[in-house]
């Protein structure tokens, strides 16, 4: 009896620990560090929320919908979202960007927001200002490269003002521009661009993985290497494209490799979820195209260990393309 009693003695109280569960806390610090308040005017300040940010736009032949949501990790620690998205959508030009501030540095959310915004606005401004006789690829590509350079220089300025190292503002950048029959993709760091062609094929454009380990990014804006990476443009014939998806690694990683999961993803976005992809837990829902609530619901998919911020920016043709 004594032996049996000893065998079932409970563990010491200190050895019994219930695994922690996720919480979601409102950040208790300002999104924008005080030294930069005077530098960052709307729309930046408007991103200073733990809540999702939704972006909508349209132009002749295209509609755009994007959302950026805070990941569970940031939510649990009461931190702001580090992802950002931005667009310039006109009848003659569409520029889209998503960015992911490097999580190892707290102010990187500023870097992501500023970089995404400047990447699209400066691309458009520089493209408009270029009255040279250069071909479209050269003009648009040069505008994109200069825009990334502008963003990098701005981050250096802000770092000086905030008295932090420029590396504190590090961010990835995925930048897409369409003008006429030309689509160009520029990328620094991770994230991805998926394209669905008018024949239904889905392909990833650029953005190969950099290292053997998850989460390792070797180059960010405003590192010197960013200009080299940004200048490695990928070109697609815009007339062949029916849908474009830009995403940060919070979307890309759970569905790696996109070369295999891309078609199923686009099918979900277009038609609504039918079957889960991989191990991600998703619920049936309607098409995401034009429906921000559906997009936010889709982006709430559960996959163990995937706790990053998530940003998805979709552009799709609003009318059929006839060859």
């Amino acid at each position: 009896m004594t032996d049996e009693t000893e065998a079932v003695l409970p563990l010491a109280a200190e050895d019994v620990v219930t695994p922690a569960v996720w919480s979601a806390r409102v950040p208790d610090v300002s999104w924008c560090p005080a030294p930069l308040l005077a530098e960052l005017t709307p729309p930046f300040i408007e991103t200073a929320e733990a809540e999702p940010r939704v972006l909508r736009a349209h132009a002749a032949g295209w509609r755009v919908l994007g959302a950026s949501v805070r990941g569970k990790s940031h939510g649990h620690r009461g931190e702001h979202r580090d992802d950002a998205l931005a667009s310039v959508v006109r009848d003659d030009l569409m520029v889209l960007a998503v960015a992911d501030g490097a999580g190892s540095s707290a102010p990187s959310r500023i870097g992501a927001a500023v970089t995404a915004d400047l990447a699209v606005t400066r691309t458009a401004a520089r493209f408009d200002a270029d009255v040279s006789n250069a071909d479209a690829v050269s003009r648009l590509g040069t505008a994109m490269a200069h825009a990334v350079h502008d963003a990098a220089m701005r981050l250096h300025e802000l770092a000086t003002i905030a008295d932090v190292a420029p590396s504190s503002l590090r961010t990835t950048l995925v930048l897409v521009a369409l003008a006429g029959d030309l689509m160009l993709v520029s990328q620094v760091g991770d994230g991805a661009v998926l394209v669905q062609k008018t024949n239904g094929d889905v392909m990833r454009v650029g953005g190969a993985r950099e290292t053997a380990w998850a989460g390792e990014v070797t180059c960010f804006v405003p590192d010197p290497c960013a200009m080299t990476q940004a200048a490695a443009l990928r070109q697609v014939r815009a007339a062949d494209v029916s849908l474009i998806a830009l995403m940060t690694d919070g979307i890309d990683d759970p569905f790696h490799p996109l070369e295999q999961s891309g078609s199923a993803l686009v099918s979900q976005w277009r038609d609504g979820t039918t079957d889960p992809i991989g191990v991600a837990k998703q619920q049936p829902m309607r098409s995401l195209l034009g429906d921000a609530d559906a997009m936010l619901q889709w982006m709430s998919f559960e996959q163990r260990g995937e706790v990053d911020d998530r940003t998805l920016l979709l552009a799709w043709r609003s009318a059929p393309v006839h060859a």
Binding site: D82, D100, A102, S104, S167, V217, D308
Partner: peptide, 14 residues
């Protein structure tokens, strides 16, 4: 584990 997705400098950790 909290900095996943954002390790720069060739993978060095802080």
């Amino acid at each position: 584990s909290a900095k996943v997705g954002s390790v720069g400098d060739g993978g060095a950790i802080t």
